[in-house]
Amino acid sequence: MIIDIPDTTASKVAKGLVKIREEGGQVALGRVLNLVVIARPEEIESSIQAANAASSEHPCRVIVVSDSGPSESTALDAQIRVGGDAGASEVIVLKAASEVVRHTDTLVMPLLLPDAPIVAWWPSIVPSKPSAEPIGAMAQTRLTDSVNSDSPEANLRTLRDNHVPGDVDLAWTRATVWRGLLATALDQPPFEPVQSVEIEGDSSHPSLDLLGAWLGKALDVRVTITGIPGAQGLTRVLLRRASGDIEFSRPDGKRATLRQPNMPEQHINLPIRSLEECLAEELRRLYPDVFYSEVLIDGLPRVETKP
């Protein structure tokens, strides 16, 4: 069910939501968190789709705030979605002029579930310091997505300079499976040092930088990233060792091949992770990701990118 409420206030929207629950038998008892999404107008629907998919595992109240552009008006247009149009969540969409949206904390305060964690998510806008944003200061977890931003590499380094515990970028989450596979391969004999690491793929994709930073920090080596024209994300990781190299190759973005000395080739299903999967993973952990913090701050200087 979708209900439009034009020219309203956040308090009226909150009362409207209570009335809908009372009349329709909807309850909020199972909601475990507040997910506040700061979205551009063109990404409202894709953000709601990802949140609805993640809500099957994490029932939540989703509040989407979108800037409708400069205006002298302080009018707020809202929409409430419940039932089949909201997955296991309640979705509230707020569209307001830029001046109103600047005060996101005041705007969403009446709509937050009390005593529930707050997660702030910017699907493509990357604030230079998420924790300093009005809603970021309220949130326990702050999710950015430099992959979808206008300047991925520059934004990743800005996030590094202004990082505080609780910040996480979904470029890190997109590399979770790669980290698991590489850790498993290195946990097999012979247990000898890795001399260098080479990574190939879309050089503008920040997941390559973060995976390289993780490997560089964990193995105490320099990491080289080489851009491959037309690549789909991360396509190849090569770990050089004295007894022979470990190589993961995924040229098609779907299936990876593992090659190791004196071992038969292994083929592994490794599709590019969806936004829904990454969002659901981060909503499982409502506490600071210590490993991400260390990799972002200490690991990135070890990465060298070639054109």
Rank of each mutant, 00 (worst) to 15 (best):
A10N: 06
K12S: 10
V18M: 08
G25E: 05
V32P: 00
V32A: 12
L33N: 10
L35P: 13
E42D: 15
I44A: 01
E45L: 12
Q49A: 15
Q49G: 02
N52D: 15
A53T: 10
A53Q: 11
S56Y: 14
I63D: 06
I63R: 00
V64N: 10
S66Y: 03
S66T: 15
D67C: 11
S68C: 02
G69E: 08
E72M: 08
E72W: 02
S73D: 11
S73Q: 09
D77Q: 11
D77S: 11
R81H: 07
V82R: 09
G84A: 13
G84Y: 02
G87P: 04
A88K: 14
I92M: 04
I92D: 11
V93H: 03
A97M: 10
E99D: 12
T106H: 04
L107P: 03
L112Q: 05
L113W: 04
P114I: 08
A120T: 10
W121Y: 13
W122F: 14
S124L: 07
P127T: 05
K129G: 14
S131L: 01
M138K: 14
Q140Y: 00
R142D: 05
D145L: 08
S149K: 08
R157E: 01
R157H: 14
L159D: 01
H163K: 00
V168S: 12
W172C: 01
W172L: 03
T176W: 02
T176Y: 05
V177I: 14
A185Y: 04
Q188K: 12
Q188L: 15
P189L: 05
P190V: 11
E198F: 12
G201K: 05
L210I: 05
L211C: 09
A213D: 09
A218P: 00
D220V: 01
V221N: 07
V221I: 03
R222K: 13
I225Q: 03
I228G: 06
P229I: 03
L238K: 15
A242R: 08
G244K: 10
E247K: 09
S249W: 06
G253S: 07
R255L: 13
L270Q: 11
R273I: 00
S274C: 03
C278W: 00
E281Y: 08
L286Y: 07
P288L: 04
Y292A: 04
E294S: 09
V295P: 12
G299W: 04
K306R: 14
P307E: 15
